[in-house]
Design a protein around this nucleic acid. Structure first.
Ligand SMILES: NC(=O)c1ccc[n+]([C@@H]2O[C@H](COP(=O)([O-])OP(=O)(O)OC[C@H]3O[C@@H](n4cnc5c(N)ncnc54)[C@H](O)[C@@H]3O)[C@@H](O)[C@H]2O)c1
Ligand SMILES: NC(=O)c1ccc[n+]([C@@H]2O[C@H](COP(=O)([O-])OP(=O)(O)OC[C@H]3O[C@@H](n4cnc5c(N)ncnc54)[C@H](O)[C@@H]3O)[C@@H](O)[C@H]2O)c1
Lengths: 218, 218
DNA sequence: AAGCCCTTGTGATCGTGTTCACATTCACAT
DNA sequence: ATGTGAATGTGAACACGATCACAAGGGCTT
């Protein structure tokens, strides 16, 4: 049993379970059954049990899973050991909101560096971070051991910045601009594309209504 | 051939193709092959062709797909006919950024209503929208024919607001708070969970490095 | 300590979606 | 016209992941 034998969808779902379990902890829940966790994550109970079974036996038969233990196990599997530093590039509307979002630190992430090209923004301190000029940005990021950059620059400049970061050997980019899809191998990129999310949501919501109507009509 | 015979993953990918094609249009590209589109969207060329084949024959053999025509076809399939109005609840750091983001309108969405509980925010005009009090919020949203709400309130209040919107018969919520997962049937909810996205990205990026190393070592 | 209830863990089965491979068809050059 | 090269469209084969169904096992009650 190697990592390659585990369905990639199982790995993806671990992140969903992780999030759900942190919420359950906050609510004070101590034990959760595969059935309950499945409802929350919108999957089947069998999937939940099978997913965990790839990694060990984390539950107690007749009882369920201890929320805290399960969370620790997932944390170990996913290697969420220590707080992770990330860098932010682009301190505009989105970047500013992110810098003011103190909750990231509770979730194990810290924006340690922030960069902007605009001289009027350089030097300002937002949250606990001072905005720096983009000169030598790649070096500063890499020398601090940071693997992930949040990219919040205008659509038009995003591809250029992304490519230059890729050249510096960065591992991953979370971009708020769409269209940074085609990237060299070796760098992972995910785009937070709100318009597409809204479009998806609306499609599924409308489909659901249409199906419900059809069922009523016979 | 009904909608039920079409893989749901095919539908999901249509949104990705849609986004990629809008980018190609902006670049001035007129024709695209399944191979090229597949690279951009990170799927296989066969998948691209099969996906489209469920809906008709949109390409020209030996040439590829006309970008504009293909986009129109997807638009028709997904029912992206007319601009869609949405409402925003919570005008804090995130909400303010969204209201100032004029690009939504280019992508077919308009934030037509904005609500906040804080009296100091009510009455302020941000972008082209004036922030309203939350009293009678559900009615105002529904009577305008809006199906989708963007939820950008603090984590703690999000579940309550989401539930009350669900009661009003709203179709869909795009939430920036995690943990609104367990919702009554009939309402679709998607959470934009940046921490989880960062965690996913880092996991995959590190896995990739590890695999690359192993390949080097033999 | 015995029996009952409950939920896990898991091999076997099933279904769905992806890949394969090639016949088909179009554009264009000669 | 006819040949050539190129990319589509698609049935068949395949692989993967989900579901099923139940044996296994822990906890609680009496
Ligand atoms: N604002 C939103 O609500 C929203 C919503 C969805 C998507 N987006 C996307 O997110 C991205 C950022 O949006 P925004 O509203 O924050 O834009 P913005 O214009 O407010 O901010 C962009 C910032 O990037 C800086 N910048 C420009 N070029 C740079 C470079 N080469 N290096 C470093 N910094 C640079 C600018 O000085 C500016 O401060 C855009 O792609 C936008 O489409 C934004
Ligand atoms: N700021 C970020 O960068 C960021 C990043 C990731 C996730 N998030 C999440 O997004 C959500 C919003 O974050 P934020 O930074 O904008 O918060 P914020 O505190 O800046 O803004 C929240 C706004 O909601 C309003 N509000 C509170 N209760 C309300 C109610 N019942 N009805 C209507 N309005 C109400 C408040 O008055 C305030 O204006 C939070 O769940 C946060 O965790 C934010």
């Amino acid at each position: 049993m190697t990592i390659k034998d585990i369905p990639s969808q199982t790995i993806d779902r671990l992140f969903t379970y992780f999030r759900a379990l942190t919420c359950l902890i906050r609510e004070g829940t101590e034990t959760v059954s595969s059935k309950r966790l499945a409802e929350i994550c919108r999957v089947s109970a069998a999937v939940v049990r099978k997913d965990f079974s790839y990694f060990g036996e984390f539950g107690t038969r007749g009882v369920g899973y201890n929320v805290k233990d399960l969370l620790d196990n997932i944390r170990r599997i996913l290697d969420f050991d220590s707080p992770t530093e990330v860098a932010l590039v682009g301190v505009g509307n989105v970047g500013r909101a992110l810098l003011q979002h103190s909750q990231f630190e509770l979730e194990g992430f810290k924006i340690a560096l922030a960069f902007d090209k605009d001289p009027r923004k350089v030097g300002h301190k937002i949250g606990s971070v001072t905005v720096q000029d983009t000169k030598g940005m790649g070096k500063k990021i890499r020398s601090r051991g940071i693997d992930l950059v949040i990219l919040a620059v205008p659509d038009s400049t995003a591809p250029g910045v992304a490519k230059s970061l890729a050249k510096e050997g960065l591992g991953a980019i979370l971009s708020f601009s769409p269209c940074d899809l085609a990237m060299p191998d070796g760098i992972k990129i995910t785009c937070v594309d709100l318009s597409m999310e809204m479009a998806r949501l609306l499609y599924h919501s409308r489909l659901q209504s249409r199906l419900a109507e059809m069922r009523l009509e016979g």
